[in-house]
Structure formats: structure tokens, C-alpha cells
Design a binder for these strands. Structure first.
Length: 575
DNA sequence: GCCGTTTTCGGCCCGACTGTTTTCAGTCG
């Protein structure tokens, strides 16, 4: 994997170039930063892209042109980057680690080097211990203590948190603010609102006429560990769960513009603001202003887009993946939403590792308006999860028949989450599989196989004719376990050829397929099933994560099998 | 260095907060 290395080098090049006084360098710095950002957030390895599509493939990446793609190629082929090495001779400083300290950028790091020969974190530690920082011009006692503090929290603060942990915390804070009586409107913004699978910090927006009281209220919340910075319109706090949280107070008349602005992402915003500039307007977090400085945007977000001649799009789309251009042409796709979902095709019961009975799960699903669910308990290889063998499964499937007889208003489909074994065979006999309405299969063991072997294993299972849905295809657990090593192009091609539906598992620690892989799979005309992987009745509420992940992959309702009515769904599953 | 509904040159988003300053540079998002 070259991505993190290459992105790191580009960031350091940007740091070093920013020390050059010449004004025209400013934009070169920006270019390297943008390229670093693009590459670090890439799912596919730049090495793979280069091997598959060459320089042309690299130059398709946003912010990567002739110069930067050449540097990437040089690094992949030789393990070195001349531009970086030349700059490093002039600036032998560990910018990469030093600038991770909050409040320390490249310029101040360079000053520390010039004055005190500080090159590394260890050098800085020693200088801090001797209290030499506060004597420097431009630094003071406060800088010294802030650097000390910044170094302590270095490791904790930069880890992005899984959405499934961050969103509930954001919602809790929103509820606290609503209950305070100090605010009128409250909204979550930032990457949490875009439902990105991990978030770096929380952004919350409020309207209030009591700015100071709001700031005090926040800084005293039980969830808050300490205050990083505090001004009249903005406060940044460290939360006990290990996230940073920004809360901004704006006027009601600015709320729409602020929500647009702070939802981002950055590239999306830059493009929208460029459109504003072209129309002779200025767009910032306070509004959309014409030449006479009149605010044209209303208190809602839609008016900002509308005045720019654009259609508003779901926050999940705002990643600068072409949505700005389509919006200007009024050609945005209608994405799948919660209301399209008729059933849930990945549900566990207490017959394997779930908490509730078949009937309880069915009744809970009926209560939230599902027309059908598929019971997908584990097979015998998953013995830790109470997986069942063929004999037990036959009995289990009869119990589903019994539950269907007993219940009205919802149909329970007979299925299983079948283990794909090491050799690509399935963990139940064909005659058992024949008794089911459809079959969902996934990998749970032997996750460390080589790419070719793993790819053949999964493709073989899909081509068996006994797999209708491939569940959580990459098997990654966010921040815990990497995706399995397989050639997704071949897997998606096989899915299309064998008419196997790909799952978008909405369980928050999975979100699998994720947005980028969904986009890739759409290229192969794959179909999707958006499921919760529920292990208890309350888990049905996790569907929103699956829906948002699908939206981030631009999934339209016609691609979603569980948006189909039951009779059409059963035609999809042909056996 | 990148990029194109100002298109192969000449632009490149914009504001808040902080610390150390007498008016602003640096950092961050």
C-alpha cells in the first residue's frame, strides 16, 4: 500500500514549499495538499492504479496532473522522490510528526529549527523540558504549555472515529442543547451529516441569541473533558469519548448558509463557491451576498443552492464526485431513501447468535412497516455464533413456516447466512439450501488468504448457483479489521454474471460494501440489498446507516432488491 | 502544480481564533 506513504511525502513537500517566501509558491503548496488529501482518502492503492492504468489512471485522480503523477510513478518504481529529497536537504526537519501537534504548523516548526535546531519530536520534548521555547521571539509561556499539551494528546486526537460511535454522541449533544432552552435551531453538520464511515470531529450548528450562555453550557456538559478554544461564535471542546467537537452559533438568517458551508466536504464547497463567484456573488457561512452585499440566501440550505441555479442534493452526495455539475444541469439522480425499503434480508434470531425469537423479530419488523424479512441464521462452521448443521436447519426452517402461519401482515422468508468455506464450497448440503426462499452467503473464517486464492474462493461460491446475496463482501470491521484481500473487479464481474446481489450491510461497524466499492460495483451493473444484519429487534433502526452508505455510493431505488414488492423480489431470486 | 460554462493562461475559497502583537501572522477547518 503506497497511499499513506505518498500522501505523507506530498504533505511534507507542501510544508517545505510553504516556507518559501515567493508568493507564487502558495498555490503549489495548495496543489500538493490537495493531492495528499485525495490519495490518503483513496480506497484503491495508487500502486495498483498505476500498474493497471498507468500514468493516465493516476491523472484521472482529482488534483493529480502531470507533475504529481510523475512523482508518484518515480516513488513506485524507485522508492524515492527527488523533489522531496532535494527539499529535505534544505529543511532536515520531521515535519510529518511535528506538524501533527495542534497549533504547530510548518512555519513555526521551521522557526524552532532555526533558533534551537529542533528537528524531531524528541528534540522538542527536550527543549520543552528545559523551558527554552518561551524565550523565543514570537513564542511565549502560553505557546510552551500548549505545545506540551498538544504533544500529550497527539496520538489520541488524530484517529478518526467510526460513524456508529460518533453519530449517537452527536445526537446526544444535540438533545442536550435542545433541552437547554438556550437555542432555537440545532443541526449536526460536517462529515457526520454526510454520514462518512469515520469522522475526525463533530460539527454542531445552533442559532441562539445567548451566545455566551450557550458557550458556557457546552463547556460544562458532562460529556466534555476540556475546552480547546472559545470565542463569541465558536467553541471547540474535547469530548470524553475521544473526539473534538466544534459548536458554532449563527443568526437565524445565516443558518441555511452555515449549514451548507459546514456540511462540506471541502472540495464540494470550493466548487459551489466558485459558482457563486462566477455569478458575481460571494458565498460564506453567513450567506450568499450580491454585489450590494444583500443576503440572497434564506434561513434554509435549499435557498442557497437554488439562488445558484442548482438543485439541492442529499448531504451524503456532497463529496465532489460529480454532484455539483449534475445539480447545475438539474440532472441529479433520485437516490434510495428509507421510505423505499420494504424488507430486510439479513436478520438473526436466537436460533444462532441473535437475541430474539423468529416471531419477535417478525413482529418488530412489521411494527416499523416492513413487508417481509429474511431470517439468516448462521451455519455450523460459525460454532461460536451458535451456527446450525443441516439437521437443525431443517427444523429451524419448519419453525419459520409455523411462524408464517401464525402471523399476518408480514412474510418471513427462509434463508441462512451460509459460511463460504476455505475452498469456496458452502456450509450446508444442497438439499437444505433447496428448501430456502433465497440464500445469503459470507466469509467468516480464514480471512488472511492470498489475493488470488481468496478471489477464487468467493467467485467459486457465487458461481455455484446457490448464492443469491453476498453478505458484507469485504468483511472489514471499521478501525478493527482490514478488508479481505481479493480482486473486487473480478468479484463484482462474477456477481453481475451470476446474478448475485451484493449486500450493503448497514451494521455500523461494517458498512460493507462501503461508498467507494458501491460506486465500483455499480460500474458492473450490480444490484444491492441494503440490510441491517440485525441481532436483536432494536437493530432494525440501523437501516439508516445502510441507506446513507448506499446514498454515498449514489444508489438509486431500481438497484435495490429489497425495495421490490415480495413477488418481484422472489423472481429476482430465481430458484 | 492543477485546471477549464472566463479553457492552454491566469487564475486558484474564506473566515474564526490565538498568541504575541500594537496591526497581524500562523494555524485550523
Amino acid at each position: 500500500m503506497y497511499n499513506s506513504q505518498v500522501a505523507g511525502l506530498f504533505d511534507e513537500i507542501a510544508d517545505m514549499l510553504s516556507l518559501d517566501e515567493r508568493k507564487d509558491r502558495k498555490f503549489e503548496v495548495l496543489a500538493y495538499r490537495k493531492a495528499a488529501m485525495t490519495i490518503s482518502s483513496l480506497q484503491e492503492d495508487v500502486g495498483d492504479i498505476y500498474r493497471k492504468k498507468g500514468m493516465y489512471g493516476l491523472m484521472e485522480l482529482p488534483g493529480v496532473g502531470k507533475g504529481i503523477s510523475g512523482a508518484i510513478r518515480e516513488f513506485i518504481e524507485t522508492g524515492r522522490m527527488r523533489k522531496y529529497e532535494d527539499l529535505k536537504k534544505r529543511y532536515p526537519i520531521d515535519f510529518k510528526n511535528l506538524t501533527r501537534i495542534r497549533g504547530l504548523g510548518s512555519k513555526r516548526a521551521f522557526r524552532l529549527y532555526k533558533e534551537l535546531r529542533i528537528k524531531s519530536i524528541d528534540d522538542l520534548k527536550r527543549a520543552l523540558a528545559k523551558h527554552r521555547i518561551k524565550e523565543l521571539p514570537g513564542f511565549g509561556a502560553k505557546s510552551e504549555s500548549e505545545l506540551s499539551k498538544g504533544m500529550e494528546t497527539l496520538e489520541l486526537s488524530r484517529n478518526r472515529m467510526a460513524l456508529g460511535l460518533a453519530l449517537p454522541e452527536a445526537e446526544l449533544l444535540v438533545n442536550r442543547l435542545k433541552g437547554s432552552g438556550l437555542v432555537d435551531r440545532v443541526a449536526i453538520a460536517g462529515s457526520t451529516r454526510r454520514m462518512k464511515e469515520t469522522v475526525g470531529d463533530l460539527d454542531i450548528l445552533v442559532t441562539s441569541s445567548h451566545n455566551e450562555k450557550v458557550m458556557d453550557f457546552i463547556s460544562r456538559l458532562n460529556e466534555v473533558q476540556g475546552v480547546t478554544l472559545k470565542g463569541p461564535t465558536k467553541i471547540t471542546v474535547r469530548l470524553k469519548i475521544g473526539l473534538s467537537c466544534d459548536v458554532r452559533v449563527v443568526d437565524d438568517a445565516s443558518f441555511g448558509a452555515a449549514l451548507q458551508y459546514f456540511t462540506g466536504n471541502k472540495d464540494h464547497n470550493v466548487k459551489v463557491r466558485q459558482i457563486a463567484v462566477k455569478k458575481g456573488y460571494k458565498l460564506n457561512e453567513y450567506g450568499l451576498f450580491d454585489r450590494k452585499n444583500r443576503n440572497l440566501a434564506g434561513p434554509d440550505e435549499e435557498s442557497v443552492y437554488k439562488k445558484l441555479g442548482m438543485d439541492i442534493m442529499d448531504p451524503e452526495m456532497r463529496e465532489d464526485r460529480g454532484e455539483v455539475e449534475l445539480s447545475l444541469q438539474h440532472r441529479l439522480p433520485r437516490l434510495v431513501s428509507l421510505g423505499d425499503i420494504r424488507g430486510d434480508l439479513h436478520v438473526h434470531t436466537n436460533h444462532s447468535d441473535g437475541a430474539n425469537t423468529i416471531i419477535e423479530m417478525a413482529e418488530a419488523a412489521k411494527k416499523i412497516g416492513r413487508e417481509y424479512i429474511g431470517i439468516t441464521d448462521h451455519t455450523k462452521s460459525e460454532y461460536v455464533a451458535g451456527g446450525m448443521d443441516d439437521k437443525k436447519f431443517v427444523k429451524h426452517l419448519h419453525e419459520i413456516d409455523y411462524a408464517n402461519d401464525k402471523l399476518d401482515g408480514i412474510r418471513i422468508l427462509k434463508s441462512a447466512e451460509i459460511d463460504i468455506l476455505k475452498d469456496g464450497s458452502l456450509d450446508l448440503q444442497d438439499k437444505t439450501l433447496d428448501m430456502m426462499d433465497y440464500r445469503l452467503a459470507s466469509i467468516h473464517t480464514n480471512l488472511n488468504m492470498q489475493k488470488e486464492e481468496m478471489t477464487r474462493r468467493v467467485v467459486k461460491a457465487m458461481e455455484s448457483g446457490y448464492v443469491d446475496i453476498l453478505a458484507h463482501p469485504t468483511d472489514r470491521i471499521i478501525n478493527v479489521r482490514n478488508p479481505i484481500n481479493m480482486d473486487l473487479d473480478r468479484v463484482f464481474q462474477a456477481a453481475a454474471d451470476s446474478k448475485v446481489v451484493l449486500e450493503i450491510d448497514g451494521y455500523p461497524e461494517r458498512l460493507d460494501l462501503n461508498d467507494e466499492n458501491i460506486i465500483k460495483a455499480r460500474g458492473y451493473k450490480a444490484k444491492f440489498s441494503i440490510d441491517t444484519d440485525s441481532h436483536r429487534d432494536s437493530h432494525y433502526m440501523l437501516m439508516k446507516y445502510g441507506i446513507s452508505t448506499a446514498k454515498r455510493g449514489w444508489v438509486t431505488p431500481d438497484l435495490v432488491v429489497n425495495a421490490l414488492p415480495l413477488d418481484k423480489l422472489m423472481k429476482q431470486f430465481r430458484k
